[in-house]
Amino acid sequence: MFSEVEMARDVAICAKHLNGQSPHQPILCRLLQDLIHEKACREHGFYLGITALKSIGNNKNNNIDNENNHQAKILTFPVSFTCRTFLPARGDILQGTVKKVLWNGAFIRSGPLRYAYLSLLKMPHYHYVHSPLSEDEKPHFQKDDLSKIAVGVVVRFQVLAVRFKERPHKRRNDYYVLATLEGNGSFGPISLTGSDEPYM
């Protein structure tokens, strides 16, 4: 689900980047980069964008931390802002584009959610179609009424399970989702003009 939350965090920046100008723009650049690299948190979900900037506090006193004088001077500013987030939850109904088709399932991409796995077990009445003879036709899943789930097809699905994957080394957190087409009759491939990729 989408939500707008108020967040506060410290933004650290090198002193030499400030160049005597107003520090607000470099601080905002650093904040946005940090959010892009982090991508998601366990509590709120994916960071979609900053909707409001509430306050930028004054520089904290970091001289005590600089035990070594050779270290570059680091300034730390507390920043308070509101951020729009998307937290996938069990039972959510989403739309996404199929990115990869395997023999046992498909990967669907839905906005910032990159790995929604739709298993063959959760596609009722679909079967895997794969002809090794003709190279033109790519593997896909097909139902008796010839509706098709292939790469590039937009699919409406329901979230079955969610897992938060924290990567301490690479510092890019992510959410993984299990998808299902069972239940509602409206699930499955749909017609949609254009792409669902949000351009920024």
């Binding site: 069990r90 039972g91 796995y117 298993s119 077990l121 959760k122 079955l160 399970a161 239940g183």
Partner: peptide, 21 residues
């Protein structure tokens, strides 16, 4: 329109789906 009853999945089955993923 969220119907949680239709989303009941066995814990073992869910774990199996995660492994396949």
């Amino acid at each position: 329109d969220i119907d949680n009853q239709s989303l009941y999945v066995d814990a073992e089955e869910e774990e199996e789906l995660w492994r396949k993923m």
